[in-house]
Design a protein around this nucleic acid. Structure first.
Length: 610
DNA sequence: ATAGGGTTAG
């Protein structure tokens, strides 16, 4: 109360200068809503000084709901508690609502219990929806059942607002029979309670029921809303039923029902996940209003389609639009940065996340950061972050082991692997095997592979593991052993295994061995251009030009094209530059090629061979 | 004067 009077003194001058003497309450509300929290405080001060707060119960309730709508539940509760007169039931309801709609569920429950001890007041049809919502957030099924019984006691069991909240609660906690009973016992059902059924089933993975209720809802002639569309789209996205998702989009366009922001977001998500980048963009660009979900879904859609540059551009637009990124934005954007190895951008993004307190304790985000630092070459920074994590998950271990592997630090990878507190999975084993391979640690690698074959990790060797072993043996010059392992791998991995073997044969000058299996790669994976190129190269090394010409001829006839290699480099203060093989398009191409030749010369002079 | 339902991540 002391604080409030001080506040009143402070802002009464301001209020007096900008407002006529006691305008109507609704006018005040409009002004306050426009100015959000500051406006609410101004109104609060004015109501106190004018005495309106003690004479009008409506004034107190309006004030509580204003604070609630400006996301200030604590101020709402303070106004409620400091009321000069005992608050009436409407004020109690507004206060409970302020807490429950601002995620202060436990406080909402406490306030509700205090209301129950008040002999003069009983909860009504406005109280129940709020308290049920709070209990749903708390996941308290025991309390939900008690409150449900209480609804009958007060004769409010046919109230559709309370029933919607109850249905929502039961479905979230997978009490399907209870939810359906409440739903069917109602004398009338509106679109909201239908939405509760559809979305409740959708969220708990009961996709069939969700679709059935949606279909039934349409049969009953209920007009769907943006809430319905969002829920039903999430079903089709989860089940990868993109054609049905498209049909929903068409339905929305045809019936002209408003999409609202969330339903548009769900469409972007759907199109993003079915590689319909253009359609996702179409929806995104046509939105009049975008929230953080819109941006996150759109950035992820670029990301799924592999367009890292577009993802980064979108991120820039997001910041310009003044939308605050969150941890999900960061996990979507960091892989794009990693892909183009833009360390400066990565550091900048990390600093931004730290400044805005977005990093706190999100395992996904920490993993993305570790991966980014490792892929951008800053492996020791990656390790510092890894060690600082309060709790690493399996992905963290895998990322860090992979990081050491790709930096040729086999010993560090092996040490990390041996100190693992979590059980490894197949990805972990691939990482540690490739670390042994790149680090030339054949014996350690063979030992892990042997243990794997003996079932020690509970994982049986898969294609990738064979591939790692071929690579490892090949690099160590154990070509016969490499060949034996390549012969064990099948399918696409078999082809890659043979390619690894062929590469190793060439490295070791055993071109005859390479020629012997050159076409096996093509036989196994004729669609893969890499196999054809490999075969042609092998014949070239051995000087078998007739065979080489034959392979090239077949490649032409079949239209096999070599995929052009592409790389990026980040220049401090000058952004990211992309290059493809033989690229002369860069404004400073001449200087760049001169520098490359210079570096190649130093490397040769330093005694390095290919 | 006060009330119920929704989307995104390795």
């Amino acid at each position: 109360m002391k604080q409030l009077s001080a506040l009143a003194r402070q802002s009464s001058d301001l209020a007096a200068s900008s407002l006529p003497i006691l305008p109507s309450l609704s006018k005040l509300q409009q002004l306050a809503a426009g100015r959000r929290l500051a406006g609410s405080r101004e109104l609060h001060a004015l109501l106190l000084t004018s005495g309106l707060l003690s004479s009008s119960p409506a004034a107190l309730t309006s004030l509580i709901s204003l604070y609630s709508n400006s996301s200030s539940p604590v101020d709402a509760l303070a106004a409620f508690s400091s009321s000069p007169n005992p608050p009436n039931l409407v004020a109690w309801n507004a206060a409970i609502s302020a807490l429950s709609s601002n995620s202060l569920s436990a406080d909402a429950l406490r306030l509700f219990r205090r209301l129950r001890t008040n002999p003069a007041l009983s909860p009504d049809r406005f109280t129940f929806p709020c308290i049920i919502k709070a209990l749903t957030d708390l996941g308290d099924i025991i309390e939900i059942r008690k409150i449900h019984a209480l609804l009958f006691k007060f004769g409010l069991d046919s109230e559709i607002f309370a029933a919607s909240a109850v249905v929502n609660a039961y479905l979230k906690m997978e009490f399907v029979d209870c939810a359906e009973k409440v739903f069917h016992d109602l004398p009338e059902r509106d679109v909201v309670i239908w939405n509760s059924m559809v979305n409740g089933f959708a969220q708990t993975g009961r996709f069939t029921e969700a679709k059935e209720y949606f279909a039934e809802m349409l049969r009953e002639g209920i007009v769907p809303t943006g809430f319905t569309i969002t829920g039903v789209l999430s079903v089709f996205t989860s089940t990868a039923d993109f054609r049905a998702g498209r049909r929903i989009h068409a339905f929305v366009v045809k019936t002209g029902c408003d999409l609202y922001v969330s339903a548009s977001n769900s469409l972007i998500d759907l199109y993003g996940k079915c590689h319909g980048l253009e359609e996702a963009e179409l929806v995104f660009e046509s939105m009049l209003e975008r929230d953080v979900f819109s941006w996150n879904s759109m950035i992820s859609a670029s990301q799924y389609s592999g367009d890292h540059v577009k993802a980064l551009q979108l991120f820039g637009r997001m910041l310009l639009a003044g939308v605050q990124p969150d941890a999900i934005t960061a996990t979507a954007i960091l892989p794009a940065i990693s892909q183009i190895a833009a360390l400066a951008s990565g550091q900048e993004t990390h600093a931004y996340l730290l400044r805005h307190g977005i990093t706190n304790g999100d395992v996904f985000l920490d993993n993305a950061l570790i991966d980014m630092y490792a892929k951008c070459g800053s492996i020791d920074d990656a390790r510092v972050l890894f060690d600082q994590m309060p709790q690493q998950d399996l992905a963290s271990w895998n990322i860090m082991i992979d990081a050491y592997a790709s930096h040729g630090r086999g010993q560090d990878a092996l040490e990390l692997f041996n100190s693992m507190t979590a059980a490894p999975n197949e990805v972990t084993i691939v990482g540690v095997l490739s670390a042994c391979s790149h680090g030339g640690m054949v014996e350690a690698g063979r030992e892990i592979f042997r243990r794997m074959e003996a079932g020690e990790y509970g994982i049986s060797p898969a294609a990738e593991h064979y591939l790692c072993m071929v690579d490892m043996m090949g690099r160590a010059g154990m070509l016969e052993a490499a060949k034996e392992i390549a012969a064990k791998a099948e399918g696409a991995a078999g082809a890659k295994g043979w390619r690894a073997y062929v590469t190793a044969c060439k490295e070791k000058g055993e071109v005859d061995r390479a020629v012997e299996v050159a076409e096996r790669v093509v036989e196994m994976e004729p669609e893969w251009s890499g196999g054809w190129v490999m075969a042609a190269n092998a014949y070239g090394w051995a000087g078998k030009y007739e065979e080489l010409a034959a392979v090239r001829g077949q490649m032409r006839r079949k239209g096999v094209r070599k995929v052009v290699g592409c790389s990026w480099v980040e220049v401090a203060g000058d952004g990211v530059h992309a290059f493809v093989t033989g690229d002369k398009g860069h404004p400073r191409a001449e200087a760049i090629y001169a520098a490359v030749h210079g570096i190649a010369g130093w490397v040769r002079d330093g005694g390095c061979v290919e």
